[in-house]
C-alpha cells in the first residue's frame, strides 16, 4: 500500500464530482437544523455514525471482493501486481465480482430515498470515470457503470493498489470533508474551526475503517445498515427545490 496513492484518492480535489454534493448539509441548513459550528459538529457525528459507517463498510467489502482474501494482505506482499512501482495498478485475475453487484444491491436496500440513490450513483459514475483515467487497469464489474459511490470507492481503491481499510477510510473521510466544506460555503463558517472538527473526527474515521476491513467478508445483509431518517427526509425535500446550489 502506498500512502501517497491513498492521498491521491482521498484528495478533495480529485475530479470526481464531490464538490457539487453537500452530503445533506444544504437541506439541513435550509431546515434550520444546521446553523453554526455546534450543530455542524452534531450533524457530522450523526452522519458518520450512520451513512458514514455504511459507506466505509461497502467500500471495504468491494475492495476486498476485487483484491482477494485478507491473507494476501497479512503476508505483506504485493499480490498480483502488474508494473514495478509500489502502489502501481493491480491485476484482477480470477476475482468473483458478482459479489460487487450484490454489494451494490445492498446499498439500494439501505437507501430508501430515491434522491439519495440518484446522488450516490451520480457520484459513483463520476468517480469511476476519474479512476478509469487515472488508473487504467480499473476493472469493469458486475455493478456496471453507475455503481453506488461506496462501491465505486472500493473499485477505485482496488485499481489503485489500496487495501480494504484504505478504501473504507476514503469513503468515510470523504463524507465528512464533503459535508464540512459545503457548510463552509453555505454558512460562511470559520474554515479553521470547521477543519478542527474534521481533525477531531479523524480517530473515528480510523476506527470505522479498521472495523469495516475486519468485516469486509460478511454476507451483505450483515453489513452495517444504520439509517438516518432526517438525511432521507432532507434529501427528498431538497430534490423538489426549484433552486439549489448542490446536487444533493
Amino acid at each position: 500500500m502506498s500512502l501517497s496513492t491513498l492521498l491521491v484518492l482521498a484528495d478533495g480535489r480529485l475530479p470526481a464530482g464531490a464538490h457539487a454534493h453537500s452530503g445533506g448539509v444544504e437541506a439541513a441548513v435550509a431546515a434550520g437544523r444546521v446553523h453554526d459550528l455546534a450543530t455542524l459538529r452534531s450533524f457530522l457525528v450523526g452522519r458518520t455514525a450512520t451513512a458514514g459507517e455504511v459507506a466505509a463498510a461497502f467500500a471495504a467489502a468491494t475492495c476486498r471482493a476485487l483484491t482477494g482474501p485478507q491473507l494476501q494482505d497479512a503476508l505483506g506482499g504485493s499480490p498480483d501486481r502488474r508494473g514495478d512501482e509500489p502502489g502501481g495498478p493491480r491485476a484482477f485475475a480470477g476475482v468473483d465480482s458478482d459479489r460487487v453487484r450484490e454489494l451494490d444491491d445492498g446499498i439500494d436496500a439501505r437507501t430508501a430515498s430515491p434522491a439519495l440513490r440518484a446522488a450516490s450513483r451520480a457520484q459513483g459514475r463520476a468517480l469511476l470515470r476519474a479512476a478509469a483515467r487515472i488508473w487504467p487497469t480499473t476493472p469493469s464489474t458486475t455493478a456496471g457503470k453507475q455503481p453506488h459511490h461506496p462501491v465505486a470507492v472500493g473499485i477505485a481503491a482496488a485499481a489503485a493498489g489500496l487495501r480494504p481499510r484504505e478504501a473504507a477510510l476514503v469513503a468515510v473521510y470523504g463524507g465528512i470533508t464533503g459535508s464540512a466544506s459545503a457548510a463552509v460555503r453555505l454558512l460562511g463558517l470559520d474554515p479553521y474551526a470547521v477543519h478542527a472538527l474534521v481533525a477531531e473526527l479523524a480517530p473515528e474515521c480510523d476506527r470505522l475503517a479498521a472495523r469495516a476491513a475486519d468485516r469486509a467478508d460478511l454476507p451483505v445483509d450483515d453489513l452495517p445498515a444504520g439509517s438516518a431518517i432526517l438525511l432521507d427526509i432532507g434529501a427528498e425535500q431538497h430534490a423538489t427545490w426549484e433552486v439549489r446550489l448542490f446536487a444533493s
Binding site: 475530479p15 464538490h19 446550489l245
Partner: peptide, 16 residues
Amino acid sequence: ETGCCPHTAIRDDISA
C-alpha cells in the same frame, strides 16, 4: 448544480 463553485464545475472538476 455547482456546489457554490461555478468555476470548479467547468474547470477543475468537470464530472457533473
